[in-house]
């Protein structure tokens, strides 16, 4: 099958349509989309727009009415659905861990189905639990009911990754947790994906989450029509239409700043010593740097490599902050 190479493979959707019998309009209408190998593509759109249905057609939990799905060049509609699903990781918002099995048994399920030798399965379970930051010794023999929501989500991700599938489908996998846990899980997962480079389709209605995690974002409107499909930076810089702009919200520029870090901006001047400038660490997002600057009433801050100015910030997102912006900040600088 397409998973001889556990690194991501390309997914192609061609004319993908789902028309439920008795419904006047199709739920998903003629979707054409290319998902490059090893990228995380976020489907974002309002509830009921068909994003989940589109995703579920890829592992055939929903059978398409018409159209074509190719994973790594292979037509998935020709494969046996159960066999296909064992090679696609699947994580959902409600997690759906099996409550009668231990954490270890939950994670081991698909590798066992695929007939892995017991020793290899055991090693893999240990590895995965460590990967999602659950101490194997402490969690292996616990039952799902004994875990917090965030821990369950981690096990859910580990279980989806179990057989090292090249493709993962994730439907709001961090949706059911509190904002703090959620943010934590997101940043952990972003790091994990950087390492694993799976091809991931990630469904959410949270645009912030889409920006944080997505290599690309497909903004969907009703019937899964693609309003815009591009990188987060491009969508924020140039929304295709009012619908996309509405989805982004009022603070598009701030969101773009959040995508860049102080390392992306050429710093001016020598590395400052202790001349009273507010300091930010390497890897800090420009949004946080701006926050630091505003909080200190300063138009510049010190980074490990030099001085970051407000003007440089504005240039980084392509606006002319040299005059107006500078004055505004200067005016606020008391």
């Amino acid at each position: 099958m397409f998973d001889r190479d556990p690194a991501g493979v390309r997914i192609e959707l061609r004319g993908l349509t789902k028309h439920y019998p008795g419904q006047p309009a199709p739920a998903v209408d003629n979707v054409n989309l290319d998902i490059p190998a090893g990228e995380l593509v976020v489907f974002v759109g309002p509830s009921g727009c068909g994003k989940t249905t589109t995703m579920k057609m890829i592992n055939r939990l929903v059978e398409p009415t018409s159209g074509e799905i190719r994973i790594g060049g292979e037509d998935v509609l020709n494969l046996h659905p159960d066999e296909l699903r064992r090679h696609i990781g699947y994580a959902i918002q409600q997690v759906g861990l099996f409550p009668h099995l231990t954490v270890g048994e939950n994670v081991a399920l698909v590798p066992k189905l695929l007939g892995w030798p017991a020793a290899k399965v055991a090693d893999r379970v240990e590895e995965l639990l460590s990967l999602v930051n659950l101490e194997p010794g402490a969690y292996h023999d616990r039952y799902p009911r004994q875990l917090s929501g965030g821990q369950q989500q981690r096990v859910g991700v580990a279980r989806a990754l179990a057989a090292d599938p090249p493709v993962m489908l994730m439907d709001e996998p961090f949706g059911a947790t509190d904002p703090i846990t959620r943010e934590h899980l997101q940043s952990e997962f972003a790091k994990l994906q950087k390492k694993l480079r799976k091809t991931i389709i990630f469904v959410t209605h949270d645009f912030e989450e889409a920006i944080t995690l997505g290599d690309r974002i497909a903004v969907l409107r009703e019937r899964s029509h693609i309003a815009q499909y591009d990188t987060p930076a491009n969508i924020l810089a140039a929304p295709a239409d009012d619908y996309v702009a509405g989805f982004i919200g009022q603070d598009a520029t701030l969101k773009r700043l959040a995508l860049l870090t102080v390392d992306d901006v050429p710093a001016v001047g020598p590395v400052p010593s202790s001349n009273g400038l507010p300091r930010v660490d390497a890897g800090t997002s420009l949004r946080e740097a701006l926050d630091t600057m505003v909080a200190h009433g300063s138009d510049r801050c010190a980074t490990p490599s030099g001085v970051l100015t407000y003007t440089a910030l504005c240039e980084a997102v392509g606006t002319d902050g040299a005059k107006t912006g500078h004055e505004e900040v200067a005016a606020g600088d008391r």
Binding site: L61, D82, H87, I92, Q93, V95, G96, V110, L113, L169
Partner: peptide
Amino acid sequence: VDAATVEAGRGMGLS
């Protein structure tokens, strides 16, 4: 039985 548990099972490739 919880629908999510069943869906997860089907989604993982259990017959």
